[in-house]
Simulated assay, not measured.
Amino acid sequence: MDVKDEFNQIMQEAAQVSIATLTVDGQAPDVRIVLFVYLPETHQLLFMSGADSPKIAQIAAHSAAAFTTQSVSDQKYARAKQAKVQKVTPTEAMKTAYFAKFPTSAAYAAHSEFFTVDFNSADVTADNQTETITF
């Protein structure tokens, strides 16, 4: 399987991603685990967070981020070091993709915000080898 296929498999199989951003004061990284869906057309991650969550203030103060997916099938994972997080108003297609993967999350949507994670490249680890994919 080539690296692009490995990446797509990981992004479809993984349900959680660890996203690191800076604290509001910019003094330390802060990591959180969120449910996500990968949007292959735009090479973005989409996640939802409670409207009162402290991470919303962190993202508003500092959009720089890094992420790693959970490990899937035989220790495969993807990660990006130079990503950007931003609050978005999701399109119907985005919401459909998210709620298709996480149907019970729809109940929380009215009290949540949606965010995308944009990235231009990712490291893909599979079969004890790491390769970089660029979009």
Rank of each mutant, 00 (worst) to 15 (best):
M1V: 10
M1Q: 11
D2N: 15
D2I: 05
V3I: 13
K4H: 12
D5A: 09
D5P: 00
E6M: 06
N8W: 01
Q9M: 11
Q9Y: 11
Q9S: 10
M11Y: 03
M11A: 05
Q12V: 09
Q12W: 04
E13K: 13
A14E: 01
A14C: 07
A14S: 13
A14Y: 01
A15L: 13
Q16W: 08
S18H: 12
S18L: 12
S18A: 15
I19K: 06
T21P: 00
V24T: 11
V24L: 12
D25Q: 09
V31Q: 11
I33D: 04
V34K: 03
L35D: 10
F36C: 09
F36A: 05
V37R: 00
V37G: 02
V37Y: 02
Y38T: 05
E41W: 07
T42L: 13
H43P: 01
H43T: 08
Q44L: 08
L45R: 01
L46N: 05
G50T: 02
G50E: 10
D52N: 14
P54H: 11
I59R: 01
H62A: 06
S63V: 06
S63P: 04
A65D: 01
A65Q: 02
A66I: 06
F67E: 00
T68Y: 08
Q70P: 03
S71Q: 13
S73D: 10
D74T: 04
D74W: 02
D74S: 04
A80G: 15
Q82S: 15
Q82D: 14
A83F: 09
K84M: 11
V85M: 07
V85Q: 02
Q86W: 02
Q86R: 15
K87W: 07
T89D: 07
T89S: 09
T91L: 05
E92I: 05
E92V: 04
T96W: 12
F99D: 10
A100T: 10
P103Q: 04
P103N: 05
P103F: 06
T104W: 15
T104G: 04
S105M: 14
S105D: 13
S105C: 13
A107I: 09
Y108G: 10
H111S: 14
E113Y: 13
E113C: 15
E113S: 15
F115I: 08
V117W: 05
V117A: 10
F119P: 02
A122H: 01
A122D: 02
D123A: 14
D123V: 04
D123S: 14
V124L: 07
T125K: 09
D127A: 07
Q129H: 07
Q129I: 11
Q129L: 12
T130M: 10
E131G: 04
E131K: 14
I133D: 00
I133Q: 05
I133V: 15
T134I: 14
